[in-house]
Simulated assay, not measured.
Amino acid sequence: MRLVSHPVLCNYYVTYRCNATCSFCDIWERPSPYVTLENAKANFEALKKLGVKVVDFTGGEPLLHRQLDELLRAAKNAGLLTTVTSNGLLYPKYASKLRGLIDMLHFSLDSPNKEEHDTSRGVKCFDKVMESIQIAKSLNERPDILFTVFENNIHQIEQLWKDICLPNDLVLILNPVFEYNNVGSQLSSSALQELRNWGKKRNIYLNDAFVQLRIDGGNHVDNPVCLAGSTTIVISPENKLVLPCYHLGLKEFPIENHLEELYQSDEVQKLIALEGRLPACEGCAINCYMQPSFAVEINKYWWKALPSTLKYNFIKGTWKQLF
């Protein structure tokens, strides 16, 4: 049973540029402009009218955008929740400008070991993440740690949780790695079970529906769970609507300050109707689009996602802003 028929999330790519070269991501290889404040303001108003609740300012590295604070302020003025994930390199420089503008701030950290984390990111950023945590706390921000889980780092969850997250009262978000475009990898069944056990711990967030979807072999085109097109609006740095999702990106539509009309057009709606049913959708388990998919339709994944969703929103207090 479908609970929500409108989009709830916008993945807003403010730039594809990045100051890291992560081994499990290829977005930093793409040339890219930066979104303009004028276009963004028009889009925020349209997003609100379309029913979107949350805007994820993403990239690339979103802090590379010199006007990120203005973009965030405009989104909040439009009544939208904001989220930003950063590698921490630029946060100490811009923290004071961003204060109070990010509802869900995540710092990426894939190992409690400085050398291992920096190697995986292709740049020395471990110390910057540690510095960013302290600066954010001093500004009364409540950052989370986003830990991308691989087979080769799952054993480090305990150390990171005990040494970094618990002492700083941070939520540890476990983000199972996913495959796309021959990037990323899969987790073994034993690793998935271990993740489930960790998800029950204090100050740890794991969407158990991610685990269940992997056990089930990902999305299946004959009975799709992915609702990427109808739950998530993807906007590129070129101010284009990307469908059915960023990773597949079959078609891009110039927005030209008409996002609401464009999204509701027959051409876009016909493509949205193919969500999860395209050949490339078979076996997909991309977290960015599955999370909102799990939230809008009651099925076994909705029930699997519910406990962790309630847990995180209770800890962060963001549930109050969703109504």
Results as ranks from 00 to 15, higher is better:
Ala191Ile: 08
Gly199Lys: 05
Pro237Ser: 11
Ala74Val: 09
Thr36Phe: 04
Ala285Phe: 15
Leu105Lys: 04
Pro112Leu: 05
Lys311Arg: 14
Lys316Ile: 06
Gly229Pro: 13
Glu45Gly: 12
Leu250Lys: 13
Val268Ile: 08
Leu271Gly: 01
Ile204Trp: 13
Cys22Gly: 07
Val84Leu: 05
Gln193Val: 08
Leu64Met: 10
Ala191Asp: 13
Glu131His: 02
Thr83Phe: 02
Lys162Ile: 05
Glu260Arg: 15
Tyr205Ile: 06
Asp69Val: 04
Cys10Gln: 06
Asn313Thr: 13
Glu115Cys: 00
Asp222Glu: 06
Thr232Lys: 06
Thr15Glu: 06
Glu194Asn: 13
Arg30Lys: 12
Asp127Arg: 06
Ala295Gly: 01
Thr58Met: 09
Ile235Tyr: 05
Ala305Arg: 01
Gly79Val: 02
Glu194Gln: 15
Met1His: 14
Pro33Phe: 11
Leu81Asn: 10
Leu166Arg: 14
Ala209Gly: 03
Thr148Lys: 12
Cys125Leu: 02
Lys97Arg: 15
Leu105Glu: 03
Ser108Ala: 11
Glu115Ala: 09
Glu238Ala: 13
Arg202Thr: 11
Ser32Ile: 00
Leu101Asp: 01
Asn113Thr: 08
Ile255Gly: 07
Gly100Arg: 06
Phe57Gly: 11
Asp216Lys: 06
Arg73Met: 07
Gln67Val: 00
Val123Asp: 00
Thr58Leu: 10
Glu179Thr: 12
Gln67Leu: 10
Phe323Thr: 10
Pro224Ser: 04
Pro33Gly: 04
Lys41His: 01
Gly100Cys: 01
Asn287Lys: 10
Val221Asp: 09
Leu68Trp: 02
Lys137Pro: 10
Tyr91Ile: 06
Glu131Tyr: 03
Leu101Pro: 01
Val221Lys: 15
Ile298Gln: 03
Leu262Val: 08
Pro143Val: 00
Ile133Ser: 01
Leu250Glu: 13
Tyr263Pro: 00
